[in-house]
Design a protein around this nucleic acid. Sequence first.
DNA 1: CGGATTTGACCCGCGC
DNA 2: GCGCGGGTCAAATCCG
Length: 167
Amino acid sequence: MPDFQLSDYLKLDEGIFDDADAYSSQIMASSEKGIAAATEVSGATSKRVTCKKCKNGAGKMKSDLGVRVALRMKSEMDVTDDGYKWRKYGKKSIKNSPNPRNYYKCSSGGCNVKKRIERDINDKGYVITTYDGVHNHDTPSMLYYNQMPLMAPNAWTMQPSSSSSST
DNA sequence: CGGATTTGACCCGCGC
DNA sequence: GCGCGGGTCAAATCCG
């Protein structure tokens, strides 16, 4: 597994995180609370209606799944596996990007989280992983992170302290 | 055999 | 009304 680092953090949801300037590892810890509150999302288990709600939640889609976060990780491979199990359910070529966009969905039970992976158009070698929603279950590798109770289950990339020795 | 993956088709909103 | 763009699902296929 290459050294994917959180190079940039894009916040697509401007409602959960009020501290827009507090973009740091703590954001995750804090976000978890927001996520937990947003975890009330349940009902998206429909089939084709997904597209329906798509337009329905055009202005409030954020509240649909709960949280939407985009992270840009340095990876030229699709090692974007954060410990969860994702099932690729679609591929789409984006006009704005010469690279295809991959759509993944959490294959865990009761988990309707979606992940969108797109290669960066400006920084090839980087991939923009956009997470839609939040996992309502523990990470399959949750036990692996059991050593960091302070860290949220989705704090995979949040380790700025470790990269401090890079310089 | 089971599960996951792949590619195309379909759908829907928007713009022109 | 049609075309475009984006997103999702579905059937077939392949791999383990």
